[in-house]
Design a protein around this nucleic acid. Structure first.
Lengths: 348, 348
DNA sequence: TGTTAGCAGTCTCCCTTGCCGAGTGCTAAG
DNA sequence: CTTAGCACTCGGCAAGGGAGACTGCTAACA
């Protein structure tokens, strides 16, 4: 993690105080102010320390006669300290209770993203785990006009998803009903992953299927599953809260940066792709400003925690300015991800 | 509509030019500039006209030696002119085609709100018509952990909605299956409104139902329908586009006003309640700035058109700064609402 | 050798001043 | 009723001048 040169203990403490103070106040931190903070050294010494920190890239001066402001590297060091020092967070029971009340996965994640946003005062998001290992409860086929077919897939644990297909061949209502019956009797209780494999296999093996309807039903199922695995659902919200938190006193929150963030929030597909890259990391992950690959996020920090439903992993986290209150945000993300994991794996 | 004093023809023309120019340029309009616009009068005359317009409240001066800027009343007059003068808009065929490709109501409205946002460069929204008069296609009951029940209601035309109930009495999987069968056989093909009435009636009439399961199924259906009528779905998006359109050159778009707008976009329930009030008006409705009842919207204008699926009405529209390009926005809303109406009533 | 006080230097911020130019309202003539 | 002309007002910009905030540096000190 710390590929940059190791800092002497005292320098690190000073850096910590600087970052914390800047997060609180939003203004450059001066040596004089620091001297009054019980660090046991005078402002002059702090000046030499700050100069050293600046040389190493942890802080910078907006202009010659200003105090110091953390760089992204400075935030990084601070966050690394924080991650070691802090005790891991527990979910507030009333929040977890609220999550438990949610039924479908949709509901649950929408609540979770809202709660994590509220607790951190940042933009919150939650991504559903792929439903692959949930077992199929019910599959409905409903005829729409123009030969289109509405497919509703219900899986255990409250996954509900639907899509519309335009199969090459027409189905009438009766055929659809029988196709649905066939698929249900055949696949109910299996995991969706299983179902997909089974469907593919059967289509391949029994190329000359004796029952035409059965073959068509399988093709329909195949298309459906391909469609549904298109992208996991993601819920994002809380931009208003974030603006409120940083008001006008953060030079990084301008209309322009806000625009890029909103754009990202609305282009869910891109967001998911982006977050996916960080999901491999494993535990609680923090990506700060310029550490991002995507240029649109370079003015923001991201905190993300994966959670598991027992088999598959989703993720939950927050996005906010690099000057966010990391302590609070880390707690929010960690506790919510735990609560979410518990809630989601309490399901059958 | 025009409860304010009637304006002489020429004054109205001048006001029109002023508003149009201000919308285009975002800067106060001076008499000298106006004189070069082929109105056939000198700047001096324009000054007396502007003074009159100001006295009557149509324009105002940001400061003594500035040009004029429209007031909300000025925009109102301009829009009223526009509504009379313009030819009604047709939907671009490729947009309508894109809408037709959507299957479920969810999909359709999400696309529609996106299209109207793109076409107008404002925040776009779309509200689903109540599904009351759609006929029930299928109702699924799925047991979740903790005695909760997932209910999925599929209605003709691609309405899919689901909710989770916690019935007082427990159902096991088998009972749920039979309850679903019973409800489906009983109510499939009826409108949801019908179903609700029927359910209530039966519960009342046959207080001592001979079949216990049947009674419980009815109670479940009752709860479901109460839950689902909770609030129609609304889709809102395009804040990033709106910011892009007005960039930094609109004094009305500040972080603070943006925050209130985002808050409104995220609190869907409140938004729906608000829009509902305007829905009664009938046709294409424009509400400008201070004409709004809600204080959070007083810096924004709203354009809204109802559309009908044959029986029930939904709505679609845009929200943007009072300085929005009304002509383009009106066209966007009108054409999309027509396209949406056609698309939605082409369904069975 | 590391720490501290003192000091000179730098740069921002804010206020004032003066000026230009934009745009107006008013007035008197057409 | 319209127009030209004129005096007036006000915002915006640039220049100038403290005041104040911090710094880096140096020299003394433990």
């Amino acid at each position: 993690m710390a590929s940059h040169p190791e800092l002497p203990e005292r320098d690190r403490r000073v850096l910590g105080v600087v970052v914390q103070a800047y997060i609180d106040q939003g203004e450059p931190i001066s040596s004089l102010w620091l001297a009054g903070r019980g660090l046991g050294v005078s402002s002059a010494t702090l000046r030499t320390i700050m100069a050293r920190l600046e040389e190493q890239g942890f802080v910078r001066q907006p202009h010659t006669s200003a105090g110091r402001v953390p760089t992204d590297l400075g935030y990084r060091s601070y966050v690394d300290q924080l991650l070691v020092a802090r005790r891991s967070a527990r979910a507030a029971p009333h929040i977890e209770a609220r999550l438990r009340r949610a039924g479908s996965v949709d509901d649950l994640l929408s609540h979770a993203s809202q709660e994590v946003s509220r607790a951190s005062h940042q933009v919150g998001f939650a991504i559903a785990p792929p439903a692959d290992s949930a077992t199929l409860e019910q599959l409905d086929l409903v005829a729409l006009e123009g030969g289109k077919v509405l497919v509703v897939v219900i899986a255990a644990g409250g996954h509900v998803s639907h899509t519309v297909l335009e199969p090459a061949e027409q189905f009438d209502r009766d055929e659809l009903q029988r196709a649905a019956n066939y698929l249900n009797s055949e696949f109910k209780g299996r995991t969706l992953l299983d179902v997909r494999q089974q469907v593919v296999q059967r289509l391949r093996e029994e190329r000359t299927l004796y029952d035409v309807l059965m073959a068509r039903a399988l093709r329909l199922a195949y298309e459906t599953l391909a469609e549904l695995s298109g992208g996991p659902a993601v819920y994002v919200q809380g931009a208003a809260l974030m603006i409120e938190e940083f008001g006008n006193d953060d030079p990084d929150i301008t209309l322009e940066t806000l625009r890029t963030l909103l754009q990202m929030m609305e282009e869910k597909a891109r967001l998911v792709r982006l977050l996916d890259e960080y999901l491999d990391a494993g535990g609680l992950t923090v990506v700060i400003g310029s550490e991002h690959l995507a240029p649109d996020l370079q003015r923001f920090s991201l905190i993300l925690a994966p959670y598991s439903d027992g088999r598959n992993r989703g993720a939950l986290g927050v996005i906010g300015p690099t000057r966010m209150h990391y302590g609070r945000a880390l707690n929010a993300v960690e506790s919510l991800s735990k609560a979410l994991a518990r809630t989601v794996s309490a399901r059958p």
